[in-house]
């Protein structure tokens, strides 16, 4: 069963300083729209190659991305800095909308885009687990049910009633990953956050992601620069280059039926 379907997804970004000139662009865009014409600035933007200086002020962070992900699959997304990986994850996590194209998904999505996401520094670990759980769409009751599991997996029992501003960055990411991994989402989106944790915890996370995908049938999207981790964990891999899907570099290991 297909759980994620990405069709002709494109995302345009404005680069450079935002200034009064954009008020003119906004008005021009609006004028084109009431005349029923296309957005004039979609035509002039550049391919996103950060090494070449361009002048149009607009770039395609993603252009014409198409792919599908099956249930229970672990999809690795690789590419150099600025290739569009994080933009793709942001669109999939509904942080920002695409410029054109669609994404369709089945089930609930939980994403972990950065260390400490949704953590309030003044609140304790315990309060933050509830906060983050509810931010990820859980009811308080559900968080309560999984609370012990979450704390145990993160291994922060001793600090659970300490404000998280006193946590080390490793402890932060342990707790953050643990909450995301234990909630009842169907799709998990994990950006390069595990790099902060120590080897033992990274391995633990990789094992956890493997088990949630094979045993619980969750779909995982995973960004990493560590090719060993990608090979170890992912059932298929897509490569992004300057915002486009690198078709010569799609690796697909057929899954054993779930």
């Amino acid at each position: 069963m297909i759980t994620i379907k990405v069709e002709q997804l494109s995302k345009q970004y404005m680069i450079g300083e935002q200034s009064t000139g954009f008020l003119f662009h906004d008005m021009n865009r609006w004028w084109h729209r009431i005349q029923g014409k296309d957005d004039p600035y979609l035509k002039i933007s550049d391919l996103n190659d950060r090494t070449i200086r361009k002048t149009s002020g607009y770039v395609w962070a993603l252009r014409d991305i198409n792919f599908e992900v099956n249930q229970g699959e672990v999809l690795g997304i690789v590419g150099s800095n600025g290739a569009g990986k994080s933009t793709l994850l942001k669109i999939l996590s509904r942080i920002t909308a695409p410029t054109s194209g669609t994404v369709k998904m089945k089930g609930r999505v939980a994403s972990l885009l950065e260390v400490g996401t949704g953590f309030h520094p003044e609140l304790t670990g315990r309060e933050n687990i509830f906060m983050k759980g509810t931010i990820l769409g859980m009811r308080t009751q559900e968080v309560k049910r999984h609370f012990d599991e979450i704390v145990e997996f993160a291994g922060v029992q001793k600090y659970i009633d300490t404000p998280v501003k006193k946590y080390s960055s490793g402890m932060y990411v342990r707790l953050a990953f643990s909450v995301a991994a234990h909630i009842s989402a169907d799709i998990l989106i994990i950006d390069e956050v595990l790099a902060v944790g120590d080897n033992e915890f990274q391995q633990k996370c990789i094992d956890k992601m493997k088990s949630v995908s094979t045993e619980q049938g969750k779909t995982v999207l995973f960004v990493s620069h560590n090719m060993k981790t990608i090979q170890d964990l992912c059932s298929s891999v897509i490569t992004l280059r300057n915002g486009e899907l690198d078709r010569s570099n799609i690796y697909y290991k057929p899954l054993i039926a779930v």
Binding site: I2, G101, V103, M105
Partner: peptide, 12 residues
């Protein structure tokens, strides 16, 4: 086509 729970597009 299928029952999608989430549909993300350029506008809503």
């Amino acid at each position: 086509e299928g029952n999608w729970d989430i549909v993300i597009g350029p506008t809503n």
